[in-house]
Each structure stands twice: as C-alpha cells, then as structure tokens.
C-alpha cells in the first residue's frame, strides 16, 4: 500500500526540503495507552463464553430477586390438592410432593444458594486479605508463624471438617457459612500474601516508602489495587465452590432446615422421585449447574484477561 514508486528524476526540488515534524507528531504513531482495567475489560469482552457467563449471572440474579414475586404462591405453603403436578400454566415448574410451587421455590432457593456463595466469598476475602496482608507485609517471624498456622489448618480435609461442624452445630444458614469459611479463607490469605511479597520489593513501593509514606497508605494506594486481579479470580471461583458444597451437604441431609429451600435440598429431595416426577430434579439441578457454569467461565475469562503474558 505504501509502495508508491516514483521516478527519482521526477521529484520536485521543493519536496526535498527539511521539515521539522518530530516534536508534535512523534507521539501520534504510538498506540493509545489504555488504563489497566480498561485493557482487562477489552480483553474480557472478546471472550464470548465469559460474556455469556455474565449475562447468565445477571439473569439469575434478576430472577432470584423478582422470581418469587411473579407467582401468587409462596415457598412454604403446602397444597395437598396439587401434589407432584407437572409443569403447567398454573405451576410453571410444577409442584413438589407437598404441592408447593416449584417456580417460587426455585427462585427462593436461588436467593439462598447465591447468598451462601457470596457470603462465603466475602468472608474469605475479609479474613484472607487481613491475614495474608499482614503476614506478607510484616514478613519475618510473624509471617512464618501465621503461614505455618494456616498450613496446618489447610491440611485438615475441608469437607470432613464441614460435615463435622454441620453434624454438631445447629443446622441453619449461619452455621453453613461458618463451616465453609473456617478453612476457606486460607487460600485467599496465601494468594494475598504472595502478591504482597512480590509487590513489596518493587520500585514504586520502595520509592513511596523512602518518600515517607505510611504503611497504611502504601497498602491502600499501591498494594491493594495491584492485588485485585488474583483476588477477583479467587472470589469468582469460591462462589461456585460454596454452592457446590451446599448441594453436597444438602444431599447428606445436612442442608438448611425445612421449609427453607436451597437448590441443593430441592435437588436431593427430587432425586428419589426422578423416575416419576423428573421436573422436581430437573429445575433445581439445571439452575445449580448453570450458576456454577456461569461463575466458572467468568473466572476463566478474568484469568485470561488479567494474564499479562497473553498481552500482545
């Protein structure tokens, strides 16, 4: 395209004058520099699977909020005249063995499952950032002790501990969230610590330290924004894990107590009825899977978008 040839002798003499272009034009040729998060978003947006995860998640959240209001039923009232009904205009997702409307219960369950997932992630984040941040930033002996303690706790098999706690403690939402976070934060703490250690010695932090910035300020201004990426990924992957664990516990009969309905309890109640009333399993199972799917692809998408190695 740029190859336009001209006979050397045809060149008009005035076009061979020096012109000064450098000062104003030299910078124009460089690609516009994007801010980090804008860049991440650009790359994330190109990942269609991850984007579909976001759309799916927004739909699920919307239905969790408004779904139960769309029907004249509530999640706990039995109706023995309409037991195990197939999906119809009256009951969109059918009814269960006590005649409760499954559409209402599924979205009520969405609230509980998502609440468990998000709470677990937020609590993990809270403890993990504090623990890992302090350990990494202070370093030395304190770091050694804190991380050893975490290692020992980490070695305790997660699900066994959760089961044990659920057996002993009073069943309920709070218990479940406590049980899940009791060792869940360790992963977050390790990641935060690793990031802090890596960043601590980088020039810009050393520079602000020599300039006399206070520890708090360094943490807030430099470390936390820079560790956001891996933290975000870990959180997105904690949520589906928690929802999974909830379903697992429900199946063992350690779920939230009736008449509360989580997707896990609904699915495990629906299992034995699978042969005759498949919709009782189908709806909760589908939505558990869709939710976990959405979070997983979002997490993958974030990881790819945040990985600077792929930056071209």
């Amino acid at each position: 395209m740029s190859k336009q040839h001209i006979n050397i002798d045809d060149i008009p003499i005035e076009s061979l004058e020096l012109v000064d272009v450098r000062a104003d034009d030299a910078e124009k040729i460089t690609r516009p520099s994007l801010s980090f998060w804008k860049d991440v978003w650009m790359r994330f947006r190109k990942n269609k699977l991850a984007l579909s995860g976001v759309v799916l998640l927004i739909l699920l959240l919307f239905m969790a909020i408004f779904g139960p209001m769309m029907t004249p039923y509530n999640y706990y009232e039995n109706n023995l005249e309409a037991v195990n009904e197939a999906p119809s205009a009256e009951h969109w997702f059918g009814t269960d063995n006590l005649g409760r409307d499954l559409f209402t219960r599924v979205w009520e369950g969405a609230r509980i499952s998502l609440f468990i997932g998000f709470s677990a992630a937020v609590i993990d984040l809270f403890i993990g950032v504090i623990w890992g941040g302090i350990a990494g930033f202070r370093g030395g002996r304190l770091d050694e002790i804190m991380m050893r303690a975490a290692d020992i706790l980490w070695a305790v098999p997660y699900l066994l501990l959760v089961i044990l706690l659920m057996v002993v403690l009073e069943p309920g939402l709070t218990t479940m969230i406590i049980a899940m976070t009791i060792t869940g934060w360790i992963n977050m703490a390790r990641i935060v610590r690793g990031q802090v250690l890596q960043l601590k010695n980088q020039e810009f932090v050393l520079a602000s330290q020599t300039l006399g910035a206070k520890t708090n300020r360094i943490m807030n201004k430099h470390l936390i924004p820079n560790t956001m990426g891996p933290i975000l990924i870990t959180m997105t992957l904690t949520i589906p894990n928690a929802i999974f664990t909830e379903a697992f516990l429900s199946y063992l009969g350690l779920g939230v107590p009736a008449p509360l309905a989580s997707w896990g309890t609904m699915a495990s109640e629906g299992l034995p009825a699978m042969r005759y009333f498949p919709w009782r399993l189908f709806f909760p199972a589908t939505f558990i899977s869709l939710t976990i799917f959405a979070f997983n692809v979002i997490g993958d998408g974030l990881r790819d978008a945040l990985d600077p190695k792929l930056r071209k």
Partner: peptide
C-alpha cells in the same frame, strides 16, 4: 497501518516533505 513514505520520517530530525509521500 505502516506510515506512507519513509517509515522513520516521523522520528527523524532530517525528514523532508517527500518522506511523507513516497517510500
């Protein structure tokens, strides 16, 4: 989108008009 003419012209202190027209 390689620049038209001499690719180095924009960074050069010795650029001439023709550098922006022909390679």
């Amino acid at each position: 989108n390689p620049p038209k003419g001499d690719a180095f012209a924009l960074r050069s202190a010795y650029a001439m008009k023709i550098d922006f027209e022909y390679e």
